[in-house]
Computed example of a mutant assay.
Amino acid sequence: MSSTMAWARSQQEDGVNPTSIVLVNAHALFREGLRHHLTETGEFHVIGEAGNGQQAIQVVDLLDPDMVVMEVDLPGVNGLEVARAIKRAHPHIRIVLLSSTMDGQEVVKAIRAGIAAYVPRNIAPEKLLQTLHQVRRGHYPINDLVLSSPDVAAQVLNAFRQMAVDEETQNVYSPLSPRELQVLELVAAGHTNKAIAQSLDISNQTVKNHISSILRKLAVNDRTQAVVYAMRRGWIKVPLPDDTAT
């Protein structure tokens, strides 16, 4: 409780508005408990709820929240399918999925769908709040899950390796946007976030957001790995020092 209240105080002192959330779970009692826990922090404001996938899509379309916290096992449409539909219509919305199982194939699908976090359904309240805090700041703690679970990590890496060597899949699947490729090329050239922001005439925070998105899409841990991954596949080209020599 003390850490939760400390978070709330720090956010209020910084003048940060509460993050709007839509809760999606088949059980009203679960939603009520989670809503109470989130609301009392002062950081989050639950603006809507849904008990199934179709209703979730309608509520999100209507309310356009900052974040959706959703159960994977929903009546009717699976939560992952709902998440895909939401991300297609509202790319800016950050989605946290609660699952009864930590299945590597599901995590792969979640990463490719742009899910920010994929956590156990029985996660401790304090841990969930920490995860939501990370998501709120534009991070993708789904990568932490990959790193912390060897079995999940193996399945995720195998899936992405297969995707890399499968030419047909690679031609269809373009993981990085043109702007993200621009950012990554500048990273590869050794530019700082500040220099990248100046070069592309965007804010430093936007650069950070692009880099977080790149790491999440490529399922890598840092900027160097992202550069190597992209260069090996021919997505970016960085001239060697000799190339520019006269």
Rank of each mutant, 00 (worst) to 15 (best):
G114E: 05
L129H: 06
L62M: 10
T224N: 14
A154N: 14
A164K: 08
K127G: 06
A226C: 14
H210C: 04
I21L: 10
I142K: 01
D151C: 03
G51E: 13
S3F: 14
V72C: 05
T244S: 15
R179W: 12
H133V: 02
D166H: 09
Q182T: 06
H27L: 10
S10Y: 14
R35D: 13
Q54D: 12
M70S: 12
G33A: 05
L34Q: 02
H36E: 15
G42I: 03
H36R: 15
I47F: 02
E126L: 10
L38A: 04
A197N: 02
Y229V: 03
G53W: 07
L215K: 10
M1V: 11
D103N: 09
P178C: 12
L29R: 10
P65Q: 09
I47Y: 01
L184P: 02
K87S: 07
L147H: 13
Q205A: 11
R88P: 00
R84L: 07
E13G: 04
V24R: 07
Q225L: 11
R31G: 06
V77I: 15
D242C: 03
Y118I: 02
V59P: 02
Q225F: 08
V68A: 04
S203E: 05
V228Y: 10
P239G: 09
V152P: 04
L186D: 01
V16R: 13
Q130K: 08
R179Y: 08
R88S: 14
E71N: 09
Q105I: 04
S174C: 10
M163H: 08
L62P: 03
E167R: 11
Q54G: 12
I214M: 04
A195I: 11
S148A: 15
I115Q: 00
S10H: 05
I57Y: 00
Q134C: 07
T192K: 15
A159S: 15
P239N: 01
V60H: 03
E167Q: 12
M5V: 14
G104M: 05
T246D: 13
W7P: 01
L128G: 00
A219M: 09
F30T: 03
I57P: 04
S3M: 14
V96A: 01
A189N: 08
D166T: 07
M102I: 10
R31P: 00
T4H: 02
N122G: 13
L218V: 08
S213N: 13
D103E: 09
M1A: 09
V96P: 02
I95G: 05
P65M: 08
K208F: 10
V119D: 06
H45G: 02
R84V: 02
G33V: 01
T101N: 14
E49H: 07
T246P: 13
V69H: 01
Q205S: 11
S2H: 11
R84E: 07
V108R: 03
D166G: 05
V220D: 06
A56V: 03
A6D: 15
A154I: 13
L132R: 02
Q182P: 06
A83G: 00
L97F: 02
S100G: 11
S3K: 12
R31H: 07
R84M: 00
A113C: 07
H191P: 08
D14V: 04
M67K: 00
Q155Y: 03
I211E: 14
L80Q: 00
S3W: 10
G48C: 04
